[in-house]
């Protein structure tokens, strides 16, 4: 039976019983009700309401179940979406890593060979060719610089080779070089170890937070800290810029959240006109 008819029927039945009782029962209401009549009416109304709500509740039960199932499904979908974007992120990082390695190991080395070869030739060719050779050498150098820049953007080699504190120091240096804001870096010694994936997440979140601070916040100062919180590691990037609305989930913020999830971490972003703080906590491995 449709829910609508069920509700009509239940209400109808309760009202019918009440009417019948009024008609057949030993009840009467005077033109100016006395207290005893009012009490009887009140009790009657209460009984009606309770009966009605009890009956309605049982018929609404299936709906509540559906709503609960719907919520659960929604949550599951959200989890799956997050998991699949985390997978996509991981795949993207792996691919970047591979391309960077090939560029570094193959193209980079070959260009180095050419560069050194040209230098070595310069002393053996007729002088009239020296300028041309020097120009070739500069082009090769530019090519090598380009490869190096691309590799650096693709894969933070410093993270793998020198670890997270050094990689953060390098980010801070980059930031100081390209922005007028000063950056203060605090890394507590003796941090618990993180998995390589978690380190990469911390690095990318710091990178994104610094990029935001430099690009949008017009900050004068930024503090970058990596500290221990129990058996977790906390990254905090705080700037004194003009802040932004954290409800409008920009690409950068969404990216940070997805990365945080990838490392089973928690990300909190607070922002006011006095500055923005990005805080990421990740469990140690």
């Amino acid at each position: 039976m449709r829910l609508y008819w069920k509700v009509v029927l239940i209400n109808g039945a309760v009202l019918a019983v009440a009417t019948l009782l009024l008609v057949l029962g030993p009840f009467s209401v005077s033109r100016h009700p006395v207290v005893s009549e009012a009490v009887v009416l009140g009790v009657g109304l209460l009984v009606m309401l309770v009966t009605n709500s009890l009956l309605l509740r049982s018929s609404f039960k299936p709906i509540e179940k559906v709503v609960a199932e719907y919520d659960a499904m929604f949550e599951r979908l959200e989890d799956e979406r997050a998991a699949s974007s985390a997978r996509a992120l991981a795949a993207q990082e792996a691919e970047r890593h591979r391309i960077a390695r090939e560029l570094h190991d193959d193209v980079g080395q070959q260009l180095t060979v050419v560069l050194l070869g040209l230098k070595q030739l310069e002393q053996r060719v007729p002088p009239e060719l020296a300028d041309e050779l020097a120009a070739l050498r500069e082009s090769t150098r530019d090519g090598l610089d380009d490869v190096r820049r691309v590799v650096r953007r693709l894969r933070p080699g410093v993270l793998e080779d020198l670890g997270l504190p050094n990689a953060l120091a390098s980010l801070a240096n980059d930031f100081a070089e390209h922005s007028s804001a000063s950056v203060r870096r605090v890394v507590t010694p003796g941090l618990p170890p993180l998995s390589p994936e978690a380190e990469l997440v911390v690095y990318r979140v710091a990178q994104e937070a610094l990029t935001n601070a430099a690009r949008h916040a017009h900050a004068d100062g930024v503090e970058l800290s990596l500290t221990r919180v129990g058996d977790r590691v906390a990254l905090v990037v705080a700037d004194d810029g003009r802040g932004f609305d954290t409800r409008t989930d920009g690409d950068g913020l969404r990216g940070m959240r997805e990365r945080a999830r990838l490392a089973h971490g928690e990300l909190a972003v607070t922002s006011s006109p006095a500055g923005t703080t990005v805080r990421l906590e990740v469990p140690s491995s």
Binding site: V147, G157, V158
Partner: peptide, 11 residues
């Protein structure tokens, strides 16, 4: 090295 990064130098 290929890496243009001052941290390598300090290390």
């Amino acid at each position: 090295s290929m890496h243009d990064n001052e941290q390598y130098f300090f290390e």
